[in-house]
Structure formats: C-alpha cells, structure tokens
C-alpha cells in the first residue's frame, strides 16, 4: 500500500539525515522523498511516499514523531489532497514518429521544451499515476533520459 506522509520539519542542518537515516536503520520501504521550503522560511515539508502495510505506517509515524525536528505529520494519501510530480523526459524522435509523439504530448497535456532532429525534450506535471501512464506511453519510442521528482502534496481547502 502506498501512503503519502507530509512531514513538517524545522529547517535544521541535520534534519534530512535524521529522517532518511530512520528509514534505512529500521528497514522501512520508501518510494520517494522530496523536500522543500514552505511559506515559513524556518520550516520545510518532507513528503514521503512509503510502501508498507497499515500497521507499519503507524509505526513509521510514531518513530518520525520522536525526532526533535519533526513538528507535524499529516497523512495525505486519499482523494482530499492534491498530489503532483514533475517529470523531464528526452525521447527519440524521427520524421516518421514526430507526429505521433506530438499527438501523445497533447493528449497527456505535457509540454515540449526543446527539440532536435532526433530528440524531443518534454516536461509534464501531474499526479503520480498519470506520470506513470505517460512514461509507459512514451517508452516504446525509446527514452534517452528521464528525471522525475518525488511526490509533493497539499490538502484541498475544506469545502463549505
């Protein structure tokens, strides 16, 4: 089961070592980790995607909460949170495939960043599931290089 944990932390020098070290030391499986500043420059959010059973996720939360730099932990797995990843991709292209590639890019609402005789560079921002679908669709053309961020997430504003 994939769980998205949004961990608000104090911006201290060793905070990332403390959090990532906890995962290696206790053998928790982690799909992605992304870290960046928040609206408050003294705080960052570490977004973790973990593949563990429910009970283990609870254990991970409790262990994280023991770290002195951790201020708050929110689970943002469900529908009430927005999740996004960014992927950058360079794909082989030729006169014969270019049209099909551009159609696909359009279908996925991705964006062409650069182009040469033999390659197209694409960027796409979407939820992790769509990013995976996008990568599958392009793999048959021959992916030359790919870089993908981890998931970041925020809860939707409360309705009403």
């Amino acid at each position: 089961m994939r769980t998205v944990l949004s961990v608000l932390v104090r911006n201290s020098a060793g905070v990332l070592s403390h959090v990532s070290g906890l995962f290696t030391r206790r053998g928790y499986n982690i799909d992605s980790l992304s870290v960046g500043e928040t609206e408050d420059a003294t705080k960052s959010i570490i977004t973790l995607v973990v593949s563990e059973e429910e009970e283990m996720v609870r254990q991970i939360e409790k262990q994280l909460y023991k770290l002195v730099d951790v201020l708050e932990i929110r689970e943002l797995t469900g529908e009430d949170a927005l999740k996004r990843e960014l992927v950058l991709l360079t794909v082989k292209s030729s006169r014969e495939t270019r049209h099909e590639l551009l159609t696909l890019i359009n279908v996925f609402k991705a964006r062409v960043v650069d182009m040469s005789e033999s390659e197209i560079m694409i960027e796409m921002v979407a939820n992790p599931r769509r990013i995976s679908g996008f990568l599958r669709a392009f793999s048959e053309f021959g992916i030359i290089e790919m870089a993908r961020t981890g998931t970041i997430a925020l809860p939707f504003p409360a309705s009403g």
Binding site: A13, G14, S17, H18, G21, L22, R25, K66, V68
Partner: peptide, 9 residues
C-alpha cells in the same frame, strides 16, 4: 544520529 535522542553540532 541513530544512537542519540538528540544531538547537535
């Protein structure tokens, strides 16, 4: 890091 409750430089 893994063997203390708190550490600081």
């Amino acid at each position: 890091i893994p063997i203390t409750k708190y550490n600081a430089l």
